[in-house]
Simulated assay, not measured.
Amino acid sequence: MSISKEQFSLSVALVVKSAFDDGILEDFIKETGLEPVIDWSPTTVIMRAISNGIRPDGVIITDDALADLLEDELVDTASVTPLVVSKVGVGVLRGSPLPDISTVEAFKKALLSARSVAYSMGGQSGLYFAPLLERLGIADQINARATRIPSGFSAEKLCSGEADLAVQQISELLAVEGTQIVGPFPEEVQKVTTFSGAALTGSVHQDQVRAFLSFLRRKAAADSFMKFGLDLQ
């Protein structure tokens, strides 16, 4: 990747893509003249790339993954910036009936009644959802007709007709036009994930990364995050 003096590279979890596309990136570029060049991937994919020697200027990933990078001294401690809190939810194609998922039993019934449930195996939601199905005792029934994707947006499978329920971080479900949120998982089985950003040690663009992360803490950015189901940490 060729980076100009006004650009810097970021590897960013998909969870914030909708909010970034909602004006955050455009506003930052307009105000500063700096342009983040973003590789959008699940945290697991970003971590794998870093372990293979890829070095973006900065990352926005789960706090657990960032802790591993801190331990390995791969990120600048002083640049670490808490960003958003995300919940996992269920989506349907807009206009479809909304199943009841208000209790664990209703949630199980909705999943079992679906023709196919789409979920991503590589993202944080899928890494949580697959074992959750085992805990709920319905893994075999759901996976026999599930639409599983390695990464990306599970709600795209609603639009293609391959699934009638999609499971993912709520902000990622909303990234796909035409998706209607049924709601978050019931609290008893909810997975709350926190995401933060940091500059990598050795980057010559640490100041630019820090400026962008600081921008993401402003009210305008917070409003965009909230619009897509994310709260600031």
Rank of each mutant, 00 (worst) to 15 (best):
L112S: 07
D100C: 08
A222L: 03
L132A: 05
I38V: 06
S18C: 02
E156N: 12
F228T: 09
I138P: 02
M121H: 12
Q206A: 08
V189L: 05
V59Y: 09
V176R: 15
S41F: 10
S214L: 13
T103S: 07
K87G: 00
S4G: 08
E162V: 14
S224E: 06
G202R: 07
F20S: 00
N52T: 06
R115F: 01
F195C: 11
K109H: 02
F225E: 02
E6K: 14
Q141P: 05
V192I: 14
E105A: 12
I142S: 11
V192Q: 09
A166P: 12
G178L: 10
T201G: 06
V204T: 14
D100N: 14
K191E: 04
I149N: 05
Q233R: 13
D100F: 10
I50M: 08
F195H: 13
E105G: 05
F195Q: 13
D72L: 08
F215E: 02
K157A: 02
D22Q: 04
L232S: 06
Q169H: 15
P42F: 07
L127T: 03
K109N: 01
S160Q: 07
G58C: 01
G161L: 09
A144P: 10
G33Q: 11
S154W: 02
L133F: 01
A114Y: 13
T62K: 05
F228W: 15
F129N: 08
L34W: 09
F212Y: 15
Q233V: 14
G89W: 11
N143T: 12
L74M: 07
I60V: 11
G89E: 00
A106T: 01
P99M: 06
R148P: 07
L112P: 03
A198S: 14
S171T: 08
I170A: 04
I142E: 07
L173P: 08
L127W: 01
Q206G: 08
Q124C: 06
A155S: 10
T43W: 03
E187M: 12
S224P: 04
L132S: 06
E26T: 15
Q124D: 04
V16E: 00
W40K: 08
A175D: 01
A166R: 15
F195M: 11
D231P: 06
K5C: 00
G161H: 11
Q7V: 03
L213V: 13
F129T: 07
P97H: 05
L14S: 00
E134S: 11
V167E: 00
F212D: 06
P184C: 09
R217T: 07
D63S: 08
S2W: 05
G91D: 00
E105Q: 13
T193C: 07
R145A: 05
K5F: 01
S102M: 00
I50R: 04
S125M: 09
G89P: 05
A211R: 14
N143R: 10
R55Y: 01
F215L: 07
P186D: 01
